[in-house]
């Protein structure tokens, strides 16, 4: 594989073989159309090592929860700046979480997190608000409140430098 192209391939074996290639042209300035056949041949050997991941998951695991939305991100909902209301995007995720929780006998801890552009103490309080907003929604969807614990980490556990992504509620399998 040529290094000039930063190519990432996600291969899933299911009903059919789906190959998706995402070539990041970045600012290399090169307009050459990526030749798809070359990389396929090169990475063909590892293909047998890509089973249907979901099948292998422990249904009560964190990974299972992460995939409730059909992929990554099922455990995380995001919030607007200094807000703790559950918006439409968050609601659909939480509905999936609630469905999953009702189907599986697991307890969860909802973590409340904030971006780093605020004071520690206020963010602990804000994180608590967010965690409880998530919990309240799950309970409203029929999950028993006793199965959901909340904890606020304030701004102490960022997931990256993107502050939008740091404002979040994360549902962790206990």
């Amino acid at each position: 594989m040529k290094n000039i192209f930063h190519a990432k391939f996600l291969i899933t074996v299911g009903a059919a073989l789906i190959l998706s290639a995402c070539a990041n042209m970045g600012n290399t300035g090169r307009d050459d159309a990526p030749v798809m056949t070359d990389p396929v041949e090169n990475i063909a050997p590892p293909m047998p090592m890509m089973p249907v991941v979901v099948d292998r998951l422990d249904p009560l695991s964190q990974e299972a929860l992460n995939q409730v939305m059909g992929g990554m991100g099922g455990a995380t909902v995001n919030f607007a700046y200094d807000r703790y209301d559950v918006d439409a995007a968050a609601r659909s995720i939480l509905q999936a979480q609630a469905t999953w929780m009702k189907a599986n006998n697991v307890n969860v801890i909802v973590e409340g997190h904030c971006d780093e552009r605020g004071t520690r103490e206020y963010n602990i309080a804000l994180g608590d608000r967010r965690a409880n907003a998530v919990k309240n929604y799950l309970v409203a969807m029929g999950v028993s409140g006793s199965r959901v614990r909340t904890v606020s980490y304030g701004k102490e556990r960022p997931v990256g430098t993107d502050q939008d992504a740091n404002r979040r509620g994360y549902t962790r399998v206990n």
């Binding site: 703790y84 103490e121 602990i124 309080a125 608590d128 608000r129 965690a131 409880n132 907003a133 309240n136 606020s152």
Partner: peptide, 8 residues
């Protein structure tokens, strides 16, 4: 401060 059920 005490945070309980989302209120501090």
């Amino acid at each position: 401060s005490k945070a309980e059920r989302g209120n501090s």
